[in-house]
């Protein structure tokens, strides 16, 4: 069971247990993590589950699709090179320990 470490804007680290068949967004909302809104419910339509991926993990994530790329341009917090939508990060055993930082705002 992969675990994810979320880093809140105030620096607080929160580790949650995830399942291999869910997205990082689904794991976050299931644990009622503040900082991930996911207004569209994981349909890649809203850009409110924006995260910054720890540099060491970035290359190991699934490739970004065109929809996600376009949505990130409109994210509420500044888009950076390591920006992703957490609903598009499908978890797998080799992502155990994934580190994701939360932006200061989602809307």
């Amino acid at each position: 069971m992969p675990s994810i470490i979320f880093i809140h804007p105030d620096g607080r680290r929160q580790q949650i247990e995830a399942s291999v068949d869910e997205s990082a967004m689904q794991a976050a909302t299931r644990h009622d993590l503040s900082g991930i809104l996911a207004e569209c419910g994981g349909n890649a339509m809203c850009a409110t589950c924006h995260v910054y991926v720890d540099e060491g993990w970035l290359a190991r994530l699934p490739t970004m699709g065109g929809d996600e790329d376009a949505l990130l341009d409109g994210a509420a917090a500044e888009r950076q090179a390591n920006s992703r939508l957490s609903c598009q990060i499908r978890l797998a055993a080799d992502l155990d320990g994934l580190v994701l930082s939360l932006p200061d705002r989602q809307t």
Binding site: T29, L37, A38, E39, C40, G41, G42, N43, M45
Partner: peptide
């Protein structure tokens, strides 16, 4: 998150 008031899936 997850309500279907706007639908879900490709036609959401």
């Amino acid at each position: 998150s997850g309500h279907v008031g706007f639908g879900s899936g490709i036609h959401m």
